[in-house]
Every structure is written in structure tokens, then in C-alpha cells.
């Protein structure tokens, strides 16, 4: 009798648990909860590891203040947004970068399209879920449908859908970074002055890149270049949008591809330009069209090469042989 009772109770509890896709959807919706917390950010490069601490305040809608703290808890860098503009202040340099806040509206895909792309490329399943920052959470795992490898693990607050912890894995399954709340509160009121920024006296103020998007048929008129898109893309990736950057009086097309989580960028530069890799670790790389340069950065691989007079650069966390395949498929 007791056994039957427990069985029925377990079935009832399971019925109450939401489906993984419902939790994912909830986590992707813009946060309505205002909060004030402390985050631990860790990165795990191939050698060594690094951890940073950040004070994070959010005021709905779209206002945020993030302070990167030093070991004694004092802010080193401050990032403030009133929902439209964003200021990044580096105390050590007394320098301010001003630009637009990151916004999903600066792309062609809407929220629904992006959700569809993500769920087409990733399996989502529930995992064991210990509390994070003393908050009850659902844990989700996102596994690539290409190779079944885990790409993300996220912990979603059961009450308000806020992502309390993220773990990011590389395409080979290696953990590369984590971001988690060590503590969090949801105050009813926050001082609005925290979300405004006035550059301090004597600070240098510079304008940042402005995010924007164009459709493919606008590329030629905006850049003067004959657009060239790869004929092959890694499984699950689609062309999302492009942007035209101005660099030293030259126009560069930035093609943006996505699989719903990761980004693949292709840059097309005018003829007779030289790619400046700076001091990045790099090596020579051979493509069917000729020599190329392959560099490694925290964003993944950077592949630069020439083709039919133009210079191209690919940036992606994907492996170098996949990038070669993309590069060699350019018409």
C-alpha cells in the first residue's frame, strides 16, 4: 500500500516538473526581476585558470551596472547602461568607451527564430540541480545534435527564470568558462542614479563600435565590395545578417552566421589590404587557394587568407579543419 502511495506521489511530482524546453524558453525571456548580486567568472584556458569577481545590478527594463572588482572588492572597471547607451569605464586608464548597449534588435533574427534555431541544433535535457546562491534552480544541459557533446549547462532560477549559473564547453567537450552568482538579492527598489554615468574629470572618452545589421542585398551598396558567401557551412549554422565596418577609410563586410548559440564571423576586406594579426600566437596554414595564417585567441581560431584579390578572415570557436572547409568553399 505504502509502495503504491510513493509511486503515485512520485508520478504526481514528475507531472509538476516542467519540460526542459519550457525551462529554456523561460530562461531566454528578458528578465523582469531586478536584482543585485555578486558573480564569480572563471576561465579555463589550456594552461592555468583565472577567476574574476563582478558586482552585478539590474533594474528592469534594460538598466544595468556591472563592476569588475579587484581582490579587495574595489571596482576596477565599471559598465553602466540606461538601456540605450552603454559606458565602459576603466579606472586604471581613466578612459571611457561610449556606445550602444548590446541589443537583440541589431540582428535580422527575432527571438522566436533564434529559439527555433537553437532547439533545431541542440538537444535540451534536465540535469541534477543543487541550489545556486541559495536559490532553487532547474539545471539544463544543451547537447549538440552534431556530435552529442555538451555545449552549455545552465541553472535557471525556479522563481523568475534568471540564469544563475552557466558553464560553457568547447566543441571538443572541454570546459572553458563558468559564470555563477555567489550571492543574489531581489530588492524592490534600487537607486536610479546607479544606472547613469558621467565620465569623471579628465577621463578620455572614445566612441565604440556601433552594432547594426544589414540584409545580404544591401552589402554591395554599403561596402562597394562584391559580396562572397561560403557555399558550405558547418552543420546547423545559417547566415543571420551582416554589418559593414569602416576601418581606416576602408569598408569591411562582417557576415554573421549562427547555430543558435555559437557565432561564426566572416570578414571580407577590399583588395590590396594587409591583415594585421598583431602579436597573436599564429602559424602558417595551407588552403587549396594558397597560404593562410591561423591564430588562436580567447574567441577561438582566427583564419586569414587571400582569394581573388580580396582578404578574408574567419573567427569561430570551431576547429581549424572546419574553418578550412568553410574557407575553401568561397566561390
Amino acid at each position: 500500500m505504502n509502495g503504491l502511495f510513493f509511486l503515485l506521489a512520485a508520478a504526481a511530482l514528475a507531472a509538476l516538473e516542467p519540460q526542459p524546453l519550457d525551462v529554456l524558453r523561460k530562461s531566454l525571456e528578458p528578465s523582469v526581476a531586478s536584482y543585485d548580486g555578486r558573480m564569480i567568472l572563471e576561465t579555463f584556458p589550456q594552461t592555468g585558470a583565472a577567476a574574476k569577481q563582478m558586482r552585478v545590478r539590474f533594474l528592469n527594463p534594460g538598466h544595468y551596472r556591472r563592476e569588475l572588482l579587484d581582490a579587495s572588492g574595489k571596482p576596477l572597471q565599471i559598465i553602466v547602461s540606461d538601456g540605450k547607451s552603454e559606458w565602459v569605464y576603466d579606472k586604471t586608464q581613466n578612459k571611457v568607451w561610449q556606445g550602444q548597449a548590446p541589443d537583440g534588435d541589431y540582428k535580422q533574427f527575432g527571438w522566436e527564430q533564434e529559439y527555433d534555431l537553437l532547439t533545431a541544433n541542440y538537444d535540451v535535457r534536465m540535469a541534477s540541480s543543487p541550489p545556486v546562491a541559495r536559490r532553487r534552480a532547474w539545471a539544463l544541459e544543451l547537447l549538440s545534435r552534431r556530435d552529442g557533446k555538451i555545449q552549455r549547462r545552465i541553472w535557471v532560477d525556479k522563481k523568475n527564470g534568471l540564469i544563475l549559473q552557466s558553464r560553457i564547453f568547447q566543441s571538443d567537450g572541454r570546459l572553458v568558462s563558468t559564470a555563477r552568482f555567489a550571492s543574489i538579492q531581489f530588492p524592490k527598489k534600487q537607486d536610479p542614479a546607479l544606472f547613469r554615468f558621467e565620465p569623471p574629470e579628465g577621463a578620455t572618452v572614445v566612441k565604440r563600435l556601433e552594432p547594426d545589421y544589414l540584409a545580404l542585398d544591401q552589402a554591395k551598396s554599403a561596402s562597394g565590395l562584391e559580396p562572397k558567401l561560403p557555399l558550405w557551412l558547418p552543420s546547423g549554422y545559417v547566415f543571420e545578417s551582416l554589418n559593414v565596418l569602416a576601418q581606416g577609410g576602408k569598408k569591411v563586410i562582417h557576415y554573421r552566421f549562427s547555430d543558435g548559440i555559437n557565432v561564426l564571423s566572416l570578414f571580407q576586406c577590399p583588395a590590396r589590404t594587409r591583415l594585421n594579426f598583431g602579436a597573436k600566437a599564429s602559424r602558417r596554414f595551407r588552403l587549396a587557394s594558397g597560404p593562410a595564417t591561423l591564430a588562436w585567441t580567447s574567441e577561438g581560431h582566427v583564419l586569414g587568407w587571400s582569394s581573388q584579390g580580396s582578404k578574408f578572415v574567419l573567427i569561430s570557436p570551431l576547429d581549424s579543419s572546419t574553418l578550412r572547409h568553410v574557407a575553401e568553399s568561397l566561390p
Partner: peptide, 23 residues
């Protein structure tokens, strides 16, 4: 004639910030 790869990395990251699940 030189174009900095750093500017491209910045543009790539600026875009990555708009992705779902980007911490």
C-alpha cells in the same frame, strides 16, 4: 593598407553578446 584583426574580433564579440544564452 593594414586592417587590424583586433577590430574584427571586437565586432565578433559585440555580435556574440546578442546571442541567446551568452553569459
Amino acid at each position: 593598407d593594414s586592417i587590424s584583426v583586433d577590430a574584427m574580433l571586437a565586432a565578433h564579440n559585440e555580435y556574440a553578446l546578442t546571442m541567446p544564452l551568452c553569459p
